[in-house]
C-alpha cells in the first residue's frame, strides 16, 4: 500500500513580497481520506493546491505529498498526483482522444496502452460519443468531465480537485460527487478537494478544514465541527425588533448563548427540542407572542459564522436555491 498522505507544515505563500495569500497553514490528510478544503473566494485555496501540486514554491514552510517533498522531489509528486485545477487547462484546438492519449503517454504508457486508457476514461466520463469534436466546442460541464478524466489518466494515488463543481448545474454536480466517492472507495485514492460550497464539503468530506483570509480557522470532521458549537438552536422570530430585546431579558440564563439577528433571537442550548415548552411559557409570562419558532441543527455555515464572525459569503445561497 503506497503512502497516500498529504502533510502541510506552516505553509506560507507571499506574492511579490507583500500579498499574503496563504498564512501559516498546517494540516495532515490521512491515506484514503476525502479532505475538504472549504473557504470563500480568495481565501487561499487555489494557492495551497498550487503549492501542493508543485506549480508554485512555498515562500516558507514545507509539504509532502505521498511522502515526497513538494519542492525537492517535485518530479515524484507529479508522478503520483492527479490534478484538476480550477482553471481548466485544455487546448481548445485538440480533441478529447488526443489530449487523453498524450496525457497517458507522458505518464509512461505506450501509445497503444494510452489509447486504450483514453477510451476507458472517455467512457467513464461519458464523452465517448464526442471524441471527434474539438474541445473548444464542448460545454462547461463536458470540459470539467474531460479535465477530471485527464487527472485520472495515470490512476493517481492522490487526487487534487480544485473547485471541481464550480459553475456546474446540480445534476452534473451530483455526477462529480458520485465519481469522487467511487474513486475514493473503490481505488482508495486520497482526495484533496477544495470547494466554496458548504453543502459539498458536508456531503463528501471525511474531514474538512475551513480557510479564510489565508488561515485555517477550523478543522475536523463535519459532524465534529458542528457538534463543537455545543448546541442546536431555537430560533424565535418576533413582529418587531423591540420584542427581541425584551425576550432576551426574559430568557436570560436559559441558553448557553443568545444571538439577536434583526427580528430573530437564536438560543443555543444542548437539548433544544425539550426546552421549547419552557421557552414558550417564559415568553408568555413576559407577555411576548412569537411570530414563529423553529429548531435548527448546526450547519457548517454556523461553524463558519462562529469562527469568522460572518456568514459564508460564497455562492452558497445559489446552491440552496438550486
Amino acid at each position: 500500500m503506497p503512502n497516500r498522505e498529504i502533510v502541510a507544515e506552516n505553509l506560507v505563500k507571499r506574492y511579490n513580497g507583500s500579498v499574503l495569500a496563504v498564512n501559516d497553514v498546517s494540516f495532515r490528510v490521512k491515506s484514503g481520506e476525502i479532505f475538504g478544503f472549504l473557504g470563500p473566494n480568495g481565501a487561499g485555496k487555489s494557492t495551497t493546491v498550487a503549492m501542493l501540486t508543485t506549480l508554485i514554491v512555498p515562500t516558507s514552510g514545507r509539504a509532502t505529498v505521498g511522502g515526497y517533498d513538494v519542492v525537492s522531489q517535485a518530479g515524484e509528486v507529479r508522478r503520483i498526483a492527479g490534478v484538476a485545477l480550477q482553471e481548466i487547462g485544455l487546448d481548445p484546438l485538440m480533441k478529447s482522444m488526443e489530449l487523453l492519449t498524450i496525457q497517458a503517454q507522458l505518464f509512461g504508457m505506450s501509445r497503444k496502452q494510452a489509447q486504450q486508457r483514453a477510451r476507458e476514461l472517455l467512457e467513464l466520463v461519458k464523452l465517448s460519443d464526442v471524441t471527434d469534436r474539438r474541445v473548444g466546442k464542448y460545454s462547461g460541464g463536458m470540459r470539467r468531465r474531460l479535465d477530471l478524466a485527464l487527472a485520472l489518466a495515470h490512476e493517481p494515488d492522490i487526487l487534487f480537485l480544485d473547485e471541481p463543481t464550480t459553475g456546474l448545474d446540480p445534476a452534473s454536480r451530483r455526477d462529480i460527487w458520485n465519481e469522487v466517492r467511487r474513486l475514493n472507495q473503490q481505488l482508495g485514492m486520497t482526495i484533496f478537494l477544495t470547494t466554496q460550497y458548504l453543502e459539498e464539503a458536508d456531503e463528501l468530506a471525511d474531514r474538512i478544514a475551513i480557510i479564510d483570509g489565508g488561515k485555517i480557522v477550523a478543522e475536523g470532521a463535519p459532524a465534529e465541527l458542528k457538534a463543537s458549537l455545543g448546541s442546536e438552536s431555537i430560533n424565535v422570530t418576533f413582529r418587531d425588533v423591540e420584542a427581541v430585546d425584551r425576550a432576551r431579558a426574559a430568557l436570560a440564563g436559559m441558553a448557553d448563548r443568545m444571538q439577536a439577528d434583526r427580528k430573530t433571537l437564536r438560543l443555543y442550548l444542548p437539548n433544544a427540542a425539550a426546552s421549547v415548552p419552557a421557552v414558550v411559557s417564559r415568553l408568555t409570562d413576559a407577555g411576548l407572542e412569537p411570530a414563529s419558532l423553529t429548531l435548527t441543527q448546526p450547519t457548517l455555515d454556523d461553524v463558519f459564522l462562529q469562527v469568522t464572525g460572518q456568514r459564508f459569503r460564497a455562492e452558497a445561497a445559489e446552491v440552496e436555491a438550486a
Binding site: R117, E120, E123, L124, V125, L152, H154, E155, Q186
Partner: peptide, 18 residues
C-alpha cells in the same frame, strides 16, 4: 444518472504494466 458507467473500467491498464 451517474458518471459511473462501469466500476471496473479503470483497471484496463494497470499501472504495473506502465
Amino acid at each position: 444518472m451517474s458518471v459511473i458507467s462501469n466500476p471496473t473500467v479503470l483497471s484496463g491498464v494497470r499501472r504495473a504494466e506502465v
